[in-house]
Design a protein around this nucleic acid. Structure first.
Lengths: 198, 198
DNA sequence: CAGATGACAGATATTGAAATCTGTCATCTG
DNA sequence: CAGATGACAGATTTCAATATCTGTCATCTG
């Protein structure tokens, strides 16, 4: 019997799971904990998610999607593609750095989750590169950028800036001078995109 | 009493330590193992290295230095800086990828060692960026590159290519298409370095 | 009868006692 | 006496017993 009067939805299970992960961390968060938090038996949770791994993957996807949505707004703007590219990269860096700085434990928890859900991360990366591709293509069509293959260039830009968005580098995001390094790299990449063909 | 007639040098201890690490892996390699491999008591090893951590750090440095020396050869060549830059980056990628592919366990062992010796790695990175800076400066002076600060640009290039030399990405180095990604990124960076000032 | 339950088997994690290792140092040896 | 040794204390790791968890399913309930 549920402790609240609300219907038990997958959505509510995901919220409870996030809370349990926040409280106990990724190593100790169990399906039993999630069920207890919801006031149901753990068998009920398994009615909505086939396995614990599937539940954790769903939580991971939700988390990644929040970032995607934030950045999609910048892609949709109209304005100078170069400015949008810089804004997009800066927003990605800022979002990650903010999360890592604000609640390092929670960030570490999600880093564990992303490490164990390679496919969800790959999808997310595909999504982000598609967003970047759109900006680069806009820049190519409006004449600011001179790349032959926007998708390839976008992929290169994404991976080149990994140091500023890959959680593996989170430790470095607190260091002084990191902002300047970010700016120097983005400047170099933008110069490369604008450069007259070789 | 040593099993061989040779004098016990720090060098011989380092060689034995590498062998023990290769055989037992980073988690199980002990100072006692190293002493046994040399036919001496473990107290003797402590006469040459104050702690186990210092011993492992020395092994790590040796390993990193081998890569530095390899690349220093390319820096010293004379020839088109753009070509040297491409060669240098390709050599770094190839060396890492070769090691990771040839003996994944040993590579994993050294990845653990580098993870626990942040300072040695930082020195190594400083060294590599200094090498890159020399190439970029040459390119600037001979007119091929147009950057205002070669050291900053070199740092940006190094970090931009992290995906192709940071052991954290070793898994991706086996994937098809990785060569093309590498080429696309290096092309973009070189275009950025050559680009007329903004 | 749709949805929830909790007992259950096998897998995984925790725990605490025993074994091993690290680092020191008084002693030994060539 | 420079260099090596091995006994030792405290720290760390191993191992096996114990507890908890995951995932299933026969049963229950509104």
């Amino acid at each position: 019997m549920a402790a609240t009067g609300e219907t038990l939805t997958s959505e509510r299970i995901l919220e409870a799971t996030e809370e349990v992960l926040r409280r106990h961390g990724p190593a100790k968060a169990t399906v039993v904990d999630v069920a207890r938090a919801l006031g149901v038996s753990h068998g009920t949770v398994y009615r909505h998610f086939r396995t614990k791994a599937a539940l954790r993957e769903a939580v991971t996807k939700r988390w990644l999607d929040r970032t995607s949505e934030l950045l999609a707004g910048i892609v949709a703007e109209d304005g100078d593609p170069e400015v949008r590219l810089r804004d997009w990269l800066a927003a990605l860096f800022a979002a990650k750095r903010r999360k890592a700085g604000l609640d390092p434990e929670l960030f570490a928890t999600y880093t564990v989750l992303t490490d164990e859900n390679g496919e969800a991360v790959a999808d997310h990366v595909t999504d982000l590169i598609a967003q970047l591709t759109r900006i680069v293509r806009d820049g190519t069509e409006s004449g600011g950028f001179t790349v032959s293959d926007p998708a390839t260039a976008a992929r290169a830009v994404f991976h080149a800036t990994g140091r500023f968005h890959d959680p593996a580098y989170a430790r470095e995001w607190q260091r002084p001078g990191i902002e300047d390094e970010f700016t120097a790299l983005v400047d170099l990449l933008v110069r490369g995109l604008r450069s007259p063909s070789p």
